[in-house]
Amino acid sequence: MQAASTNTVFEPILSFFRLRLGNSERKKFRRSVEHIIGEAPSNIGLYQLAFRHTSASKETAIKGFKESNERLEYLGDAVLGMVIAEFLFKKFPYKDEGFLTEIRSRIVNRETLNIIARKIGLENLIEYDGSRNRGIVPSRTSMYGDALEALVGAIYLDKGFRFTRGFILKELLGHYDLEALISNNANYKSRLIEWAQREGKKVEFIIISERGNNHFREFISQVTVNDEPFAQGSGYSKKKAEQSAAEKACEQLQMKPVSN
């Protein structure tokens, strides 16, 4: 899919974002994007949209329609997942589907994407409404990883698949230590459940509280062993909170790291 045939669909939305940037701001923003992706952007409005967090969404030229980077995030997530899947499929020709799925999951998990997004400088470009976060530090949310996926979506629409694939493989995967990623079994929940089965114990995960709002919600999970509280953890999704609690439990049990 090429930019020329795609951008016309977004013109009513993108024209709104182009109007919001003054000439000097527009040039500075363009230079920042060019530095990140390695080539001058053709449609700057796509990238402006990619960095608009949902908390800062405003009505566009389309009456009653509020736009943020969520749609581009959806697209970028699909493109990123497909490129990583192809990369792993070719790199590990004798590994089964379970291995490939697990490693892809580790590569695209939200915490890792948050870190990479900040490394490449996205934190200075994201537009968000800090007054809506109710005291939760933005750097601890999924905002940066979401913006990175939205950026991938924007690049795909602006530059096409071949360029986007190169950006992912060269600029993003370069921040990973693939060998360490493979050797480190970070699925603490699975490890804890396996331990419980060996020891004949019952392990349960319970979400005991939530805090924040729709944009910045944090979950607190508790691990119980034989119905007794054992460890707690937090995260910005229920799954991540459970993993955090499981990690704390593994630490208390002094479990050694597991290699694949």
Results as ranks from 00 to 15, higher is better:
Asn187Ser: 08
Thr141Gly: 11
Tyr128Arg: 02
Ser142Trp: 03
Val152Phe: 06
Ile206Ala: 05
Glu204Ala: 12
Leu192Ala: 09
Phe167His: 04
Ile208Ser: 08
Arg191Gln: 15
Thr141Ser: 14
Leu192Met: 09
Tyr176Phe: 15
Phe216Glu: 09
Lys201Cys: 15
Gln232Val: 15
Ile208Lys: 11
Phe219Trp: 09
Ala154Phe: 07
Tyr128Val: 12
Pro138Arg: 06
Ala150Leu: 07
Phe219Tyr: 11
Arg132Glu: 02
Val152Ile: 15
Asn226Cys: 11
Lys201Pro: 15
Gly153Ala: 09
Lys201Tyr: 14
Gly130Glu: 07
Glu171Asp: 13
Tyr188Lys: 12
Glu194Ala: 13
Ser209Trp: 05
Asn133Cys: 11
Gln232Glu: 08
Ile207Cys: 13
Tyr176Pro: 01
Glu204Ser: 13
Arg211Asn: 13
Gly174His: 13
Met143Phe: 07
Ile193Arg: 00
Leu192Asn: 01
Gln232Leu: 12
Ile126Gly: 01
His215Met: 07
Tyr188Glu: 03
His175Ser: 06
Lys201Leu: 15
Arg211Leu: 11
Gln197Arg: 10
Gly233Met: 04
Glu194Trp: 01
Gln222Gly: 04
Lys201Gly: 14
Asn185Val: 08
Glu218Asp: 11
Ala186Pro: 00
Asn214Pro: 01
Glu204Trp: 04
Ala180Leu: 04
Lys202Gly: 07
Arg217Asn: 14
Ala150Ser: 11
Asn214Gln: 10
Val223Phe: 04
Gly145Val: 14
Glu149Val: 13
Phe219Met: 08
Asn214Ala: 10
Val137Tyr: 01
Asn214Asp: 12
Gln232Ala: 04
Leu169His: 05
Arg217Val: 15
Asn185Tyr: 02
Gly212Tyr: 05
Leu151Asp: 07
Gln232Phe: 08
Asn213Phe: 10
Phe161His: 00
Gly145Trp: 05
Glu228Pro: 00
Ile207Ala: 09
Phe205Ile: 11
Val203Glu: 01
Ile193Gln: 01
Glu127Lys: 04
Met143His: 02
Arg211Val: 15
Ser190Phe: 02
Arg211Ile: 15
Thr164Glu: 07
Glu171Gly: 05
Asp177Tyr: 04
Val223Asp: 03
Ala180Thr: 13
Asp177His: 14
Phe216Met: 09
Asn133Phe: 14
Asn133Glu: 08
Thr224Tyr: 04
Phe219Thr: 13
Leu173Val: 10
Val152Ser: 07
Arg140Tyr: 09
Arg162Ser: 14
Ile207Leu: 10
Phe205Asp: 01
Glu194Gln: 13
Ala186Leu: 13
Gly233Thr: 03
Thr164Val: 09
Gly174Cys: 12
Ile193Met: 05
Thr141Val: 14
Lys159Cys: 13
Glu204His: 09
Val225Phe: 06
Asn184Trp: 02
Gln232Ile: 15
Glu199Phe: 07
Arg198Met: 14
Arg217Trp: 09
Phe163Leu: 05
Ala154Asp: 01
Thr224Cys: 06
Asp129His: 12
Asp158Met: 10
Asp146Arg: 03
Tyr128Ala: 10
Val137Glu: 02
Gly130Tyr: 05
His175Met: 08
Phe163Ser: 02
Phe163Asp: 01
Leu181Glu: 13
Pro229Cys: 11
Ala231Cys: 15
Lys159Tyr: 14
Ile207Asp: 04
Gln222Val: 11
Gly153Tyr: 03
Leu172Val: 13
Asp227Tyr: 02
Ile207Thr: 12
Gly174Pro: 08
Glu210Pro: 02
Trp195Arg: 00
Ile182Met: 03
Glu127Ala: 10
Ile193Pro: 00
